[in-house]
Structure formats: C-alpha cells, structure tokens
C-alpha cells in the first residue's frame, strides 16, 4: 500500500511540474490561439539563469532562501525579456498570417534559443548546487522532500493566482476580452498589443519558476532540457483543455499520475508483457481516448464548429 501511495505522490510531483509549464502554454493559447512551441525553451533559459546565479552566489554566505529568491528573480527577469522579445519578433508580425506561420517561427525560435544556450552555457550538463536540504519526510510510508512539497504548493498557488488575475482584475478582464474578440476589445479601448505582450511576460515568468523548480528537483540543467518538458506540458495542456487555466493544472496532474502509475503497474497488469517502456504510449492512449470522447479536452471550452 505504501508503494501505491508513493506512486501517487510521485505522480503528483511530476504532474505539478508539468502543470507549471502547461500554465504558460495555456495562457498564451487562451489569448492568441497560438501554440507557443518555444515555451519549453524559455523554461530551459529560466533553469539555466537561476542555476548560474545561485552557483555564483553559492559561497557568499547568504541564506538558502535568499539564494533561491535571487536566482528566481534573475531568471524571471531574463525570461520575461526573452518572452517579450519572442512575441515582438516572431509572433506579432504574423497575427494576420496563415495559422501555421507562427508555428514555424516558434520552431525557429526554439532552435535559436537552444543553440544560443549551448553557446552560452556550453554542452555539458549542469548540476544544481547542493544548497537544499536533502532530508525527506515520511507520510503513510511514502517519502517526499520539502522541495517537492514546495513544488506542489507553488504550482497550486500559481494556478490560483492566475485565476484571480484573469477573473478578478481589470487586466484580466482586458485579457478575456482580447481572447473573446480582439477587434471588439480594441474598440472598447483595450490596448491589445499591450495585453498580448503582458500575457507573454507573465507566461515567461511562470516558465522561470518552473525552470528553477525542475532544475532544483532533479538537480540537473542542460540546454536541451526544454524540448521534452515542453512536449509533455503541451500534451498536459491539451488533455485538460488548452486555453483553460484549471484545465492545464488538471491535465498536468493527470498526466503525471498516468505516467507514474503506468510505469509502476503496467508491467504487473499485463503479466510482464508490457513494461515501463510503454509508459508514454499509455499516456498517449489515454490522451487519444479522452480527446475522442471529449474533442476539446477534459474541461476545455467547446470549439465552435467553424474552426
């Protein structure tokens, strides 16, 4: 039983990480209807910057909390700048272009960011400085570290914060208006360029948080880490219903649980015929199954027939 609880906890942690990244995807999608394929790379940049800053200050004698905060602040600033620039250069000129054009520029941006990171941080893997306590606590026979608790909490907090931002503030109202119908929003006095820039900046700040969390939890950062993470998070966002904040969270957690339970039990369930190497297949089958019955994700808004 404790093994089962452990697998659930594993899934929750993994899922929270997916959810953190998926929030960024879904925000941009919600406003612009655009898959920001470069989001995974922004997470990578966040991880790299945070790690470099923390490494730099590691021996300064600052408390761990401040170290993390400085790392996060630097990462957030850089990511916000990167996100802002990406939108300005690669997406804004293409708002009236065919739907797939920004997808190609996103892939281009992704390649550029990856190789820039390789030039800056080199080809080697970077280890996260061992500043975090490694003690773990035991709940019902399952172990979890304090950092992992923090990850789950932060992901939840981020989601709640975003929802408040979108549903309760003036800015959020403008965002919703832009998402609903940009031209009418503009007529109502919403500066949609500003709103879209702002969306990217917030999404990128979230990416910085996710980057720090990922690199701290797995104590590893590498210029290629964004691709896989972005892909998983994108899957999670679609599973939940892309464009929907709660959906991203739900999709992320669900994907994490599916992967974790899939890897843990698929072998025993199939009598050893399938093993943990089919974990991703398992996840994709669930995704396809969900989308066949709910074509716009678990809690996504119904896409109008006129696509």
């Amino acid at each position: 039983m404790d093994i089962f609880i452990q697998q659930i906890i594993n899934g929750l942690i993994l899922g929270s990480i997916y959810a953190l990244v998926a929030l960024g995807y879904t925000m941009v999608y919600g406003i612009m209807g655009l898959i920001n394929f470069a989001h995974g790379e922004v997470v990578m940049i966040g991880a790299m910057v945070a790690l470099s800053v923390i490494k730099l200050l590691e021996n300064s004698g600052l408390p761990v909390f401040l170290l993390l905060l400085f790392g996060l602040a630097a990462a957030a600033l850089v990511c916000m700048a990167v996100g802002f620039t990406i939108e300005r250069i690669a997406y804004r000129p293409l708002r009236r272009a065919p739907r797939l054009a920004p997808l190609i520029t996103a892939i281009g941006v992704s390649i550029v960011l990856q190789n820039l990171a390789m030039l800056i941080w080199g080809r080697n893997y970077h280890a996260f400085p061992p500043i975090l306590p490694t003690t773990s606590m035991t709940i019902f026979g399952a172990t979890i570290t304090s950092l992992q608790v923090a990850i789950v909490l932060i992901a939840a907090l981020m989601m709640i914060g975003l929802m408040i931002l979108i549903n309760r503030t003036r800015l959020g109202r403008a965002m919703r208006a832009t998402s609903e119908n940009p031209s009418i929003a503009q007529l109502m006095g919403v500066n949609i360029n500003q709103i879209i820039s702002f969306t990217f900046v917030i999404g990128s700040a979230l990416a910085a948080v996710a980057g720090l969390m990922v690199s701290a939890n797995y104590s590893i950062a590498h210029y290629y880490m964004g691709f896989m993470l972005g892909l998983k998070a994108f899957t999670a966002a679609v599973l939940g219903g892309i464009g929907n904040i709660a959906g991203a969270m739900l999709g992320g957690i669900l994907l994490g649980l599916i992967e974790s339970l899939g890897a843990g039990y698929i072998g025993d369930l199939t009598g050893g015929f399938l093993g943990s190497h089919y974990q991703d297949i398992f996840a994709f089958f669930v995704l396809i199954g969900v989308l066949v019955f709910r074509p716009s994700g678990l809690i996504g808004e119904k896409v109008s027939e006129r696509a």
Partner: peptide
C-alpha cells in the same frame, strides 16, 4: 531524455 525516475524506482523499491 528523462529526468524523473521516481515511478520505476518506487517499483524497484
């Protein structure tokens, strides 16, 4: 490309 091995390690445990 994986970084998370918690699920398989839990099973191994």
């Amino acid at each position: 490309k994986a970084t998370d091995f918690a699920a398989i390690l839990t099973k191994i445990k």
